[in-house]
Simulated scan of single mutants.
Amino acid sequence: MLIETAYAKINLALHVRRRREDGYHELETLFAFVDDGDRLAAAPAERDSLTTFGAFAATIDDPLGNIVAKALSALPHGRGWAVELEKRLPVAAGLGGGSADAGAVFRMVERGHGLPADWRERAAGLGADVPACVRSAACIGTGTGTELEPAGNDLAGTPVLLVNPRLPVPTGPVFKAWDGVDRGPMPRGSVREIAIAGRNDLEAPAIAQCPAIAEVLAALRETRPFMARMSGSGATCFALYESEADMGAAAEKLGELHPGWWQMAGKLR
């Protein structure tokens, strides 16, 4: 039995530079990962199968069409695997939930069989966030997010609180609503320096489609983190704290004020 966590992905910064002729967008982003997320278990079987359960399992309409099944199809892993996926991360939430699940499959295959030399290309074929999610370590992504370089991670171990208003926000319409204005490159430096000086260019179009994101951000900023921002294309927002005590107090306060919001507390990897 192989067991793996699909670590939640957040974008500490996300700068959209231009629309490309192929319909995608040229990005500069700082990926980071939380030490919690979905959970997967795999055992050898006659053929591949996927069973889903957990808080957000009902949001997966077609398990066999899920990105986990696609990741299995993309990699040699013996005759088959029976995979169980505990879906703990909301879907269409800016956390790369499906990409994180696929990344976890890649890591399980690596442990059980090794990865093929072209695994990065296979990962990118499944989604722009998947290559970063395979290693689930802080890194800088350029191009569509698939061209990766390491980042000096001075935020590892930082307490983080994720909050989502339980409203899905599909990625496509948010990118389509981006105003096309290039607001400049992502700054250079350590992870902390980039995060604090950076921005998320998708916040405005996402809030226009889901005003509750602004409420989440305002509530997080009232808990006095050293930074709070929306992740990806929303609707999940995150806040980073100097201490676990500060983060715990924030989680308790928001739980009391907004019991309907989803939240996950952890540390940056």
Rank of each mutant, 00 (worst) to 15 (best):
H113I: 12
Y24G: 08
E26Y: 11
P205R: 11
R122H: 10
F226M: 09
I140Y: 14
L30T: 14
A13C: 15
S49V: 09
V163I: 13
G152I: 04
L220S: 11
A69Q: 14
V134T: 10
F31S: 09
D201G: 14
I140T: 13
H77E: 03
R47W: 00
G54D: 03
G248M: 01
N66V: 13
A124P: 13
W262N: 08
A124Q: 12
G103D: 14
V134A: 12
Y7M: 04
P90D: 06
G98W: 11
G103S: 14
W178R: 12
L64A: 15
A235D: 04
P185C: 06
S243F: 01
V105D: 06
R17V: 14
V191D: 07
M108I: 05
R122I: 06
R135G: 15
A177L: 14
R17G: 10
D22V: 01
A45I: 05
G145A: 05
P131V: 04
G65C: 03
R120L: 07
S233M: 01
P150L: 10
D179W: 13
P225W: 06
A58R: 15
A219Q: 01
A195C: 14
A100E: 11
L75A: 03
E110P: 05
H77A: 02
T146M: 09
L40W: 06
A58T: 11
G234C: 01
R135T: 11
I196G: 02
A117R: 10
K9Q: 10
G127K: 01
T171R: 08
G97C: 06
A208S: 12
A206C: 03
A43M: 01
V16S: 06
E21F: 13
C139P: 07
G112Q: 09
N153R: 07
G103R: 11
K9R: 12
P76K: 12
Y241N: 08
E147G: 01
A132M: 04
H258P: 00
L40M: 09
M186P: 06
T142A: 13
L126T: 07
L202D: 11
I207M: 08
V191E: 10
L2H: 14
G234A: 01
E215Y: 00
R107M: 04
E215A: 13
P150H: 09
Y7I: 00
L75E: 03
M186W: 05
A104Q: 07
D179C: 11
M186R: 10
A13N: 08
V163K: 05
K267Y: 04
D201K: 12
V181W: 00
N200E: 12
V109P: 06
R188S: 15
A71T: 02
S233N: 00
D101P: 04
E121G: 03
G94Y: 07
V16F: 05
I196A: 09
R224T: 03
G198K: 06
T59I: 00
L217C: 10
W178P: 09
G143S: 08
M186V: 09
L257P: 00
C133W: 11
G23M: 14
E86Y: 06
H15D: 13
A55Y: 00
N200K: 09
L2T: 02
A151K: 09
S233C: 01
V169T: 15
R39E: 15
V68P: 02
D36F: 06
A218S: 07
H15E: 10
K87L: 03
R17F: 12
A100W: 06
D35P: 05
R166A: 15
L148I: 02
H25M: 05
P168H: 10
